[in-house]
Amino acid sequence: MADDEHTDDAARTDGTGIVPPDDETPTWRERKERTTGLSRLTYEYFERSRREDQDLREESDYVERDVLAFPVWPHELIRNLALTSFFVGMIFFLASTLPPHLGAPANPSQTPSIILPDWYLYWSFGLLKLGPLNPDLAILGGEKLMADRTYGVVANLVVVGFIAIVPFLNKGSARRPVEQPFWASVGVMGVVFAVTISALSMKNLVPLDSSLLFDLTFLVPPIAGAITYAVLKTMREGYMYDLNRRYYKLRPPK
């Protein structure tokens, strides 16, 4: 082996040991085609996906639906900069006109009558108060499987977990709410539930009987969702009507 390497003096004349390419030297494409195993699979997949991309581009008559994405630069970024610089100005305006309040210093021996987190945690705070929904099992002799507090924490996890798996439940190319009335109404139900559960979280401040409020918290969101569903279905009928009306080209009047 060592002898073989020493006989090939031409390759090392420049001292680097790099062989200049000649007709026998494989191109990068040939090298990739010759690979085996995982690198071969990778090569084949990339070739396929490149070809797919090219075919789609060539076959497309460029209707809206074929477009998956647009570059961030330039339109999106320029438009965002223009709009958000105004919004940042609004932050400064709010900050100078509505400065925050600094309450009395912390006093562990005096519990205030109203304890609330910041507004964006109301929904989570409300989910901690779902005790009445915690089932008590007859098998356990009327005892609850989980403590009410644990139940609240689990409710938080369930809500966040459901939101996280939405992309894996709702597939397809539908984008607008009219195209997917069900998922749009699920969204509206979620938003309304966020509002009602926030109201529940501060039930001592809401001028409603607390059991009525508790029932409304769970009744109002499905109603809102159902109304949204009906409205979107109706709107879709209207869209389809417009589409069908224009679908056939009519013979012009004589």
Binding site: L102, P105, A106, N107, I115, L116, P117, V153
Partner: peptide, 22 residues
């Protein structure tokens, strides 16, 4: 961080929330 009444009792809620994790 301001450690006023709201902060202290929000902290109390936080402690209770984490204590209720099984």
């Amino acid at each position: 961080l301001p450690w006023d009444q709201l902060a202290f009792w929000a902290g109390q809620i936080g402690v209770e929330m984490s204590l209720s994790i099984p």
